[in-house]
Amino acid sequence: MKMFGTKSLSSYLFTLSRVVSVLILLLALFIIISILTNNMALLDGRFAIALPVSNMEIKANYNLKTIFTISSTLVFYAGYIYLLSLIFKTFKAEKLFTKTAVKYLKYFTVLNLIVFPFSYLFIRFVVMGGVKINIPFIVLHVLVGVLSAFLIALFNNGYSVQKENDLTI
């Protein structure tokens, strides 16, 4: 199977990541709307929201900290996976090395190296009041950010070579 171009792995990953990002965003909106409209079960300081197309429920403590944490995490990862879909979209194009690909990779790098660690620590210390930190989770995002920084350098070089090649032809 081809990695790049139409009908390739990147094309399928684009579609999959786009669908997943929309589903996560819809889940976040469903939770927020259910809480705002009081469409949930409350028992002993916990809420339970039944998901409409399955037998599953979302259960958590019924307080502002928990609701904010769940909602912001879902919205963050919906945006994260949507940005990943934009990167896959550039990989399925005819020209692989473009300024657009570099731009999306830069956004992805900043999201992993700066936005995620600060937002994660903000939620853990400020919102949740110093709950235990999951160090491997932060390290994983930082490693993905470093890898995408390497991809930026690679794509910048590829863009330069492709641009020179297009000029000589």
Results as ranks from 00 to 15, higher is better:
Val131Glu: 15
Ala60Cys: 06
Lys89Tyr: 14
Leu147Gln: 05
Gly145Trp: 07
Val127Ser: 04
Lys132Tyr: 12
Leu111His: 06
Ser10Thr: 10
Leu29Gly: 13
Val139Gln: 03
Val139Arg: 01
Ile67Glu: 10
Ile24Ser: 01
Leu74Ala: 06
Ile35Glu: 08
Ala78Asp: 07
Ile138Cys: 01
Phe122His: 09
Asp44Ile: 03
Arg124Thr: 11
Ser71Gly: 03
Val142His: 02
Leu27His: 00
Gly79Ile: 07
Lys132His: 11
Tyr77Val: 09
Leu51Val: 01
Met128Asp: 12
Thr100Pro: 00
Tyr159Leu: 15
Tyr104Asp: 04
Ala101Gln: 13
Thr109Ile: 05
Leu96Glu: 08
Ala60Ile: 02
Ser160Trp: 05
Asn38Met: 10
Ser71Gln: 00
Tyr62Gly: 01
Ile123Ser: 12
Val115Asp: 06
Gly158Glu: 02
Thr109Gly: 10
Ile32Ala: 11
Ser85Pro: 10
Leu83Asp: 06
Lys95Asn: 12
Ile81Pro: 05
Ala50Ser: 14
Ile31Pro: 01
Phe30Met: 00
Thr98Ala: 08
Leu151Glu: 09
Arg46Gln: 14
Tyr104Arg: 09
Ile24Lys: 02
Val127Met: 06
Gly79Thr: 06
Lys95Ala: 07
Leu147Tyr: 14
Val142Ala: 12
Leu113Arg: 10
Leu36Ser: 09
Leu83Ile: 11
Asp44Lys: 15
Leu86Pro: 00
Thr168Gly: 00
Leu113Gly: 09
Phe76Ser: 07
His141Lys: 11
Asn156Pro: 00
Gly5Glu: 07
Leu27Ala: 05
His141Tyr: 12
Ile31Gly: 00
